[in-house]
Amino acid sequence: MSNPFGNRTSDLLDISGLTVALPLGGRHRTVLSDVSLRVGAGEAVGLVGESGSGKSMTARSIVRLLPAGAHTEGSIRLGGADVAALRGPALRDLRRRVPMVFQDPRAHINPVRTIGDFLTEALRAHSRTPRRAGQERAVRMLEEVGVADGRRRLRQYPHELSGGLLQRVMIAAALLTEPHLLLADEPTTALDVTTQAEVMAILDELRRERGLAMLFITHDLELAAAVCDRTAVMYAGRVMEVRASDLLHQHPLHPYTAALTAARPCLDRRAERLVTTAGRPLSAFEAPDGCPFATRCAHVRQRCHDTRPGLRPLAGGQVACVRAEELHQERAVPHE
């Protein structure tokens, strides 16, 4: 798929050195620190991390949905255009091209407006699509996301639909504006396990059909591996590791990624006790000067505390750990 913005850069999204500070309790606190990430056209990139690691803030920065008073440094380029420079209609156009699917559809869809209204309002605001034509498109899109009887659904209100249906409606709304990049912020976390799989399958299928790029935010490394080409792992507002999803999942380079993988209970093995990582996840502003994971890392050395490691290329990806090479050798990764 060619770059839809008709630009020479091959990356659709290019975040570099993004640092964000939010006003909290009277002073600015860093929530993202030097985040760099690329998403190519048609590529799905997973963004994995614990709560508070800065995944959602990264996604919100892309469409400039940060809380008022946020300080931002670094650059975000979408199709070559600097997002920070966009104003008025240009910013609204960016937002239409980069829709967001939120975690909790019940809170994120206006409860007093009909489903039809929700689906068509962006169409009518942007391209002045007539009401009837918009409704026709909405019904077809609902069918694509697996919602039957679209005509009736358009007249219904959000409280009359189940969470799974509502999330499909949200996905349909996101796809209706012919987007280039989909930001999916834990789209299945608030759903039942059975609905989760269905919604995820629909999202994945429609994305592939359309060659649509996606930034998929989740705390589930395995889910990210299943639907994303590459996965980035975040901790304390920093990117710790970026690699092809299957490699990252099976042979993590960063000790934090390894800890995340180990923490997930395995279905086919009986475990006496679930593996946990000691300590609690840190926010960016409370992270120590050196490696933010140093306080919880099993492989920590003195130099981890001294300098903050940046992302370095290694084994087909990037990793921010001073001992990555050593640990990589030690584990004697079988695929190499």
């Binding site: 949905l65 994120h108 869809i109």
Partner: peptide, 13 residues
Amino acid sequence: REHVQTAISRGLP
């Protein structure tokens, strides 16, 4: 509210 966030995120004026 979240649903207003959604409306802004969709690029409504």
